[in-house]
Design a protein around this nucleic acid. Structure first.
Lengths: 335, 335
DNA sequence: CACAGACACTAACACGCGTTAGTACACCCG
DNA sequence: CGGGTGTACTAACGCGTGTTAGTGTCTGTG
């Protein structure tokens, strides 16, 4: 299949019209079911037959051009470190929901600098980013991008994600640990994410949750994703924060790092230190001990994001945020 | 930032022309550096200034329409189960490389049925899929899609992936196990992937690799991604295939499942059973014991894919496949 | 029989761009 | 002064759609 034969240029609506013996306008009316126009049954049949015969599909570009607005949504992929299994599932769900909404999802890796370059060469109807400065957002809006939203921003989606969604996770994490008798908590993150975007928010929300329950603010433990170095970091931290018995891990990897470090030190979970992570994964279920995790429903998140974006594109008011963040506690053995 | 003000419709090349006091044609010549046309320094300056002033960006749709070919590449996401950390990195790299090649990557989840629907509503220049039947491929080509390639197909990319790339992994996996004194091997997969696409190929390539070294063909172990059920499967399999001491795991999750099952049975790695996985991940490094893995370089893969696709789109002959699959053995403690 | 109105269809424009053919002007050579 | 050669620019077309305004025919009504 290497020598792909030169494809006869794809069929256009004019080809369909010619084959069906009608005008191009009629073809358009039939295929779009234009309600203001009536078409005889016979003509409709002929047009549909011709379209099928030529396996005609309208050109997305021409359609976008004609209707005046693009149908593509540019989604900036979060930085590699944050590309978790959960995000993968959200992305997958997004692609299907956007498709149902008649939008196509263009994905691009987030590169700090030439961001403007990308969104301007794709001319999307909306942009969904992980992290976005207000200047960037303003610039995009000024250039015809109707919907601009970000995960950690101050727009509708950002507020919900960093609000209800994070709050749900924090409540479940802290609640589970407290129920097991842990009153001094810590917050674990891996790598360079420390104090960046999502991590920053999570930490803040956890602090508030603890405060509300009359617990001391959780200290931050930054762990390398390597067993022996994780052990080292864990030991150092233990010395500086005695009495902490429960850990809220930022994600699956952070939870695994805590477990790996503990193993090296001869500590046992949950006896010596209890762990609850966020964003469930296959690896978490297979850990030793199997990790108790807060699972975030990709469906709820994807649904809300698509609803907001389509509303922005259509110019209608943004829908109310779901009251729940779609978080569920998956109880296993690490607490 | 909710009340997004109505954006003044985005600037067109006509706006730039008006502001610069020249014709639209001249604007196009300046901005595209058309080599057949000479432009006075003064005019060029004025046009560039006007473009900058209006922060003009050409419409991707109009450009594609005018130049006759689309610039979007439709990438079908592999089914959720195969969405590994490694694939994530490849996707990330793809987006950057395609961008450099002037193509934009549209991502869509692979849904068995309405596949045709998607690629026809996006009208991409090329389609890259995980798995693709020859009929689907033929249909797309007949409809103006110039490049059609798939991961497990019989096209250039497919041959390389299922050839050199899989072969490299198999050689490293088997080689490492043999070096440690293991001569009877098994192949572990999780979930429903059993005997589908990539897994099927991997198994076949492993069989050939073993044959070449005079070893018996590896038996297949299918594991659930759950510790106790994995243990059960492992025990049953052990009874039916005694003497096997080395396991080639399909991916990170399969390797973790083997480890989890062994732990439940009180077996130790690598003493009772040695494990080598493919597609390294953070979780593999944090496992107990840390997993020896074959890491596949996303750069090599992404680079070749982009080279092939751009060649197909341009109509030039496809470049030769890289001799190496970009696989490296990451030695840890599970062998 | 004339006229209104529904019906079925089409001509023609707009969308924003790339590009070909062509125009106006200045210059040099015979 | 006529004709050629550049140089710097523009008018106009085509890409494939969606859509508005219009045209012709058939039917029913006063």
């Amino acid at each position: 299949m290497d020598g792909q034969e030169i494809s006869p240029r794809r069929a256009t609506s004019a080809d369909v019209a010619r084959l069906a013996g009608v005008s191009r306008t009629t073809v358009s009316f039939v295929l779009n079911d234009t309600p203001t126009q009536s078409i005889s049954a016979e003509t409709r049949r002929r047009v549909l037959a011709a379209a099928r015969e030529l396996s005609y599909a309208p050109s997305a570009e021409a359609r976008a051009l004609s209707r005046g607005r693009s149908t593509s949504v540019l989604v900036y992929l979060p930085p590699a470190r944050s590309l978790t299994e959960e995000i993968g599932r959200i992305v997958e769900r997004l692609s299907m929901l956007f498709d149902e909404a008649g939008l196509s999802m263009v994905i691009h890796a987030w590169t700090r600098r030439p961001a403007a370059q990308v969104w301007s060469s794709v001319t999307p109807a909306a942009v969904l980013a992980w992290d976005l400065t207000d200047e960037d957002a303003q610039l995009m809006r000024g250039n015809g991008v109707r919907g601009v939203a970000s995960w950690t921003g101050t727009d509708a989606i950002g507020r919900w994600v960093t609000g209800a969604r994070e709050q749900d996770s924090a409540r479940l994490q802290v609640g589970r640990l407290v129920a097991a008798g842990h009153h001094r908590l810590g917050y674990a993150v891996t790598g360079a994410d420390h104090m960046h975007g999502a991590s920053q928010w999570r930490c803040e929300v956890l602090r508030r949750e603890c405060e509300q329950r009359g617990l001391p603010a959780p200290g931050v433990i930054r762990l390398p994703a390597d067993p022996s170095r994780a052990a080292q970091a864990l030991e150092q931290w233990r010395a500086s924060a005695p009495g902490v018995t429960g850990i809220c891990a930022h994600d699956s990897t952070a939870a695994l790092a805590v477990l790996a470090g503990m193993r090296r030190l001869g500590w046992r979970a949950p006896e010596d230190l209890a762990v609850v992570g966020v964003s469930d994964s296959a690896a978490a279920a297979l850990a030793d001990p199997p990790l108790t995790m807060v699972a975030l429903d990709p469906e709820v998140t994807a649904r809300y994001i698509v609803d907001v974006v389509t509303a922005l594109v259509a110019g209608s008011p943004t829908p109310p945020a779901p009251s729940s963040g779609g978080a569920i506690l998956v109880d296993r053995d690490s607490v």
